[in-house]
Write a protein that binds this DNA or RNA. Sequence first.
DNA 1: TCAGTCAAGTTCTATTTGGAACTCGAACCT
DNA 2: AGGTTCGAGTTCCAAATAGAACTTGACTGA
Lengths: 164, 164
Amino acid sequence: MLEAKLWDNPCPFTFRINYLALLYNTPLYGWISDEYGLKRPEYVVLYSLALADGGSARDVSRTSGFPKNTLSRAITQLEKLGLIKPRSKAPGGRRTQALYLSDKGWALIHETRPTFEAQEKRMLKALSEGERQMLFELMSKVVREAHSWADELPFEAINENEEG
Amino acid sequence: MLEAKLWDNPCPFTFRINYLALLYNTPLYGWISDEYGLKRPEYVVLYSLALADGGSARDVSRTSGFPKNTLSRAITQLEKLGLIKPRSKAPGGRRTQALYLSDKGWALIHETRPTFEAQEKRMLKALSEGERQMLFELMSKVVREAHSWADELPFEAINENEEG
DNA sequence: TCAGTCAAGTTCTATTTGGAACTCGAACCT
DNA sequence: AGGTTCGAGTTCCAAATAGAACTTGACTGA
């Protein structure tokens, strides 16, 4: 069945995307869970803040796909674990809370992120450096145009060819 | 935060993969759920069988990442809905059940799959035909080598550079 | 042929998830 | 300023999910 999904699939690109995401995420988040007792949404918040400290729950939701209530719970838990700074002393009132990693949170990121990086590197070992750059360019191009297709489904398009 | 995750991420490839998977899957499976009352694992089984009729629950699990009990439930439900053929008359005994779409199941696939295809096409509109082919090649290359990295995590590698 | 092993599928149950309604502070408008 | 709208975050709860134990058919080897 894997062969059919790879080579006989009307959606070869999105299948590859989903399949690679699966092979990448499953072991890594399983490891995070076993080793650090953090669920995926919790670690996602940490990872997100490590890239954009001071971001809000809404930012994480928008960029990760988790609904805001799931993240609300995750953030409460991270605060309880001392992995992010307490929110009470947030400067601008209460709405749109800026979240910051604590030292402990940073330590955890520095300890775990290399494994994520190494796994990504391993995934791309099949490619030469030039190929990796090309792949990065192409994926970036697709992502940059995401706004044009991500909002609604192509219902009107399904019965016509709009491009050759 | 999106900018940081795109351009400042130590895992730029897997972030793009996850992000695109998110933008692709969410609206499509939401539509399937609203319009046809099928949950994601249920539709995944149908889609899988449309590509490899006669496949087993285990095949679907391996290629989709859903655990086998989730698929067991999905398959029971699909059988109840008449979207796959009844399993009782499976030829080779009871273990490793070969699953087959019913006419109704095929009809549903023919009705819905074009939207998935159209959405993939829209995603890739940012690319020229040559770029699409290149992207396909590169992704295929990565997938083909998946066996070499998908099984275990790179714990030994995180403190050394194994390739420049 | 029969015992032993293995793995596909099922069931049970606790955990996790996410939709919906709600709260509440901030921005906006007149 | 007062009233209205907006949306970020929380809470509640039903639904979905996945781990673990179990069942059962098939393959193995003597």
